[in-house]
Structure formats: structure tokens, C-alpha cells
């Protein structure tokens, strides 16, 4: 059910940005989703077909850009891509980290026809 409310929010956001452009149709949505934001592409796509019906965005294509999690070790200052159970730094085993990427959860752009 999580993806349903996310998809509704997505539609609202796309329509909000299309409105002032006097678009006849929204054809494409470009999403940027970090690995940490626990969203399933297929599920969003599934709900999208329902929620976008009878709107400007009906039938629009969803493009997902996935961003892998990247951490910066604050001890040795190296960045790395963590493994599933290996969250600590592979170089120095440090566990003080900063998240460089992976939190993204945004609509980057839409394409419209008018």
C-alpha cells in the first residue's frame, strides 16, 4: 500500500508542474530514487496506470533512475558502496559514516506536449 500513496503524490506533483505550461499531455516522468528509499519500481508503475487515468498524465511513461547507496568513512575519508551486511568501511572497518548518496526520492523532470 505504501507505493499507492507515493504514486498519488507523484501524480499531484507532476500535474502541479504541468499546469502553468498549458500542456495537453504529460508524456514522461523522470524519477530519481535512491536505494535507501525502499520503493519498488514495478509497484509504482502498477498503481500509476490506475491513478493517472483521466488526467493529463494518463499513459505517461515512468523512467526510474536508481542511485546506489554511497557512504563516506569519517575515519579514513574514503567513500565506498556498502554491502548488504557490510555497512562498515571496507578499508579501515570504521563505523562513523556520512551518507553521500542513496537518499534521493524526487521527481527530476517531466516531459509535456502542447
Amino acid at each position: 500500500m505504501h507505493e499507492l500513496s507515493v504514486t498519488e503524490n507523484l501524480l499531484e506533483l507532476a500535474l502541479k508542474h504541468a499546469e502553468p505550461t498549458q500542456a495537453n499531455r504529460i508524456t514522461d516522468l523522470y524519477l530519481v530514487i535512491g536505494q535507501l528509499s525502499s520503493i519498488v519500481d514495478d509497484s509504482v508503475q502498477f498503481y500509476w496506470d490506475f491513478v493517472s487515468k483521466d488526467t493529463l498524465a494518463e499513459g505517461a511513461r515512468l523512467h526510474f533512475k536508481r542511485i546506489p547507496t554511497e557512504l563516506l568513512c569519517l575515519d579514513c575519508n574514503k567513500s565506498y558502496l556498502p554491502g548488504e551486511e557490510q555497512l562498515s568501511c571496507p578499508y579501515c572497518d570504521g563505523i562513523r559514516v556520512k551518507i553521500l548518496a542513496g537518499n534521493e526520492f524526487r521527481l527530476e523532470a517531466i516531459e509535456i506536449e502542447n
Partner: peptide, 16 residues
């Protein structure tokens, strides 16, 4: 005419 509109907004910005 086709046009790309930049959005760059969090998907849950209305909730936030």
C-alpha cells in the same frame, strides 16, 4: 510540441 520541464522536487513534498 514536446518540452522538458525541470521539477527537482521531493515526491513527498506535499506531505512534508
Amino acid at each position: 510540441m514536446r518540452k522538458r520541464i525541470p521539477v527537482i522536487e521531493n515526491i513527498l513534498s506535499a506531505n512534508d
